[in-house]
Amino acid sequence: MSLDRSQVENIAMLARIGVAESEIENYTKSLNSILDLVDQLQAVDTTGVEPLANPLDATQRLRADVVTEVNQREKFQKVAPKTEAGLYLVPRVVE
């Protein structure tokens, strides 16, 4: 499978990575060379093989419903780009 410019633009948009017009060519080239590499998989017959998501095939442990976290707003918001009145500020969200 090979990507064209507009597909690369779509992918960048989905990933929310701003890409300048001048960079698209380069991305298209390098993404296609990576896809060439991974496309080797297509030749392998994997019919009936259960995908392996966790190498140990382990199952989920459960956590007791007990409060363990305390309020650390001040500490957390010290590393925030912009806050006011305890809120994280972002450009106006339109709905």
Partner: peptide
């Protein structure tokens, strides 16, 4: 939640 009261023209995020 996004709160849309006016914070210098910005929205506030409460998580």
């Amino acid at each position: 939640k996004s709160l849309h009261e006016d914070f210098e023209g910005m929205s506030g995020i409460d998580l």
